[in-house]
């Protein structure tokens, strides 16, 4: 299987601080990889580099042609209606408005917001806005989907619903996913592979060979292992 992402010897400095210290990582096509780490371990920086938002790096990396990002904040344009937020930036669908509209409506139906096409983004709840943001990322049919803690700002119940939705969307569209999070459960629920980052380096890697949809009880042992990779040994407290 050809790789979607190939990273070799990636180094990134912010002034005197080395954020990524010679990182190597491959992601296969259609693979769901979770990047775990404490704040400041360089995981978000890596995502920004792959998204092309931070060109000033050493080392090499290749990404597919179509890359999409969903950020921690939905970052919708408040002055464009929901469906326009999704269809804007869409290329190769032709210029016709009604075609764009149809594509946006299909994408909205996938995130169960079909009746919100004409809403203004500021009238949506946090979870709804984040779903629009997902629909907007997926409508471009990306070969690589970068998720930067997209559930970090949501309440616990909404998060659960979003996990399910993301898994479903990933199964239907099959992009390679690089999913940045600091939530071990979230990573183990969704990812084929969990990569633990510390001080700009990969310090551990776990393949999660469990059937989906997964239950938390099924990965209790793995969870202890990953937490210990993250430097959390007192599992009772975690």
């Amino acid at each position: 299987m050809a790789g979607a992402v190939r990273i070799r010897g990636l180094v990134k400095d912010f002034g005197p601080r080395r954020v990524l210290a010679g990182l190597d990582l491959d992601v296969a096509e259609g693979e769901f990889v979770a990047l775990l780490g404490r704040s400041g371990c360089g995981k978000s920086t890596l995502l920004r580099i792959l998204a092309g938002l931070d060109p000033d790096v050493e080392g090499t990396f290749t990404v597919p042609e179509r890359v999409s990002v969903a950020f921690q904040q939905p970052r919708l344009l408040p002055w464009r209606r929901v469906w326009r937020n999704i269809s804007l930036g869409l290329r190769g669908v032709g210029r016709q408005r009604d075609k764009h509209r149809a594509v946006a409506e299909r994408a909205l139906a996938e995130v169960r917001l079909a009746d919100h096409a004409d809403a203004w983004p500021l009238t949506l709840s946090g979870g709804e806005a984040q779903r629009v943001s997902l629909a907007r990322a997926l409508v471009r049919e990306p070969e690589l989907l970068l998720l930067d803690e997209p559930f970090g700002a949501l309440d616990a119940l909404t998060r659960l619903a979003m996990h399910h939705l993301v898994e479903q969307l990933w199964r239907e569209h099959r992009p390679a996913v690089l999913f940045v999070t600091h939530d071990v459960d979230e990573a183990l629920l969704l990812a084929d592979r969990v990569v633990v980052l510390d001080e700009g380096r990969i310090v551990a890697e776990h393949h999660v060979d469990l059937p989906r949809p997964r239950r938390r009880a099924s990965f209790a042992d793995l969870r202890v292992e990953v937490l210990s990779d993250l430097g959390v040994d007192d599992v009772e407290a975690a």
């Binding site: 998204a51 092309g52 999409s68 990002v69 950020f71 970052r75 804007l88 930036g89 869409l90 990322a137």
Partner: peptide, 15 residues
């Protein structure tokens, strides 16, 4: 943040 999002979503400069 909005400009960044627009860039990664493939907006042209005019967009």
């Amino acid at each position: 943040a909005l400009l960044e999002a627009a860039r990664v979503l493939g907006y042209t400069r005019l967009d």
